[in-house]
Design a protein around this nucleic acid. Structure first.
Length: 141
DNA sequence: GCCAACGTTGGC
DNA sequence: GCCAACGTTGGC
């Protein structure tokens, strides 16, 4: 059981949209490193949904209902023959009870090595267990 | 295979 | 709206 953080532009697709839809296929990720992380996502894993843009905060928690699978629209292909683009399905679990912003995360030195802070433009990243615990506390999840 | 040009993400 | 930090593309 692992936790990942996924970025989304709330104007495009927000946590509230996920609550409304009950479930969704997490697609639209083209970045290679992000796709690599996505391939490791399995049913039962949990996703911290992070809103980019004006909000820059953790919006809520979601649970993976279907492990990573090839994108039926555009699976692509890696040198290994594996599909290049994968999706996973999620359902909403809990909306954030506290506002945990990027500034809050950056202000805490324990997150100094966290990909959200360190690596620009990465939209899907694994969350180490220690940081996961911290983030959930900060976001009221 | 290098690298300049270009496109995109996302914070500011 | 700007631009830094990436990734990708294409000419050579």
């Amino acid at each position: 059981m692992a936790t990942f953080l996924c970025k989304t532009e709330p104007d495009d697709y927000s946590y509230d949209d996920l609550v409304r839809d009950k479930r969704t296929e997490w697609d639209g990720v083209s970045n290679n490193a992000a796709q690599m992380h996505m391939r490791t996502i399995a049913k039962g894993d949990e996703i911290l949904i992070y809103h980019t843009g004006n909000e820059k905060r953790i919006a809520g928690l979601a649970t993976v209902t279907k492990s990573a699978y090839p994108d039926p629209e555009n699976p692509g292909e890696l040198a290994s023959g594996e599909p290049k683009f994968v999706l996973f399905d999620v359902k909403p679990t809990k909306a954030a009870g506290n506002t945990c912003t990027l500034a809050d995360v950056k202000a805490d030195s324990r997150f100094a090595d966290f990909a959200l802070v360190k690596q620009a433009r990465l939209s899907v990243m694994p969350v180490p267990a220690k940081l996961d615990k911290l983030l959930r506390k900060m976001a009221g999840l």
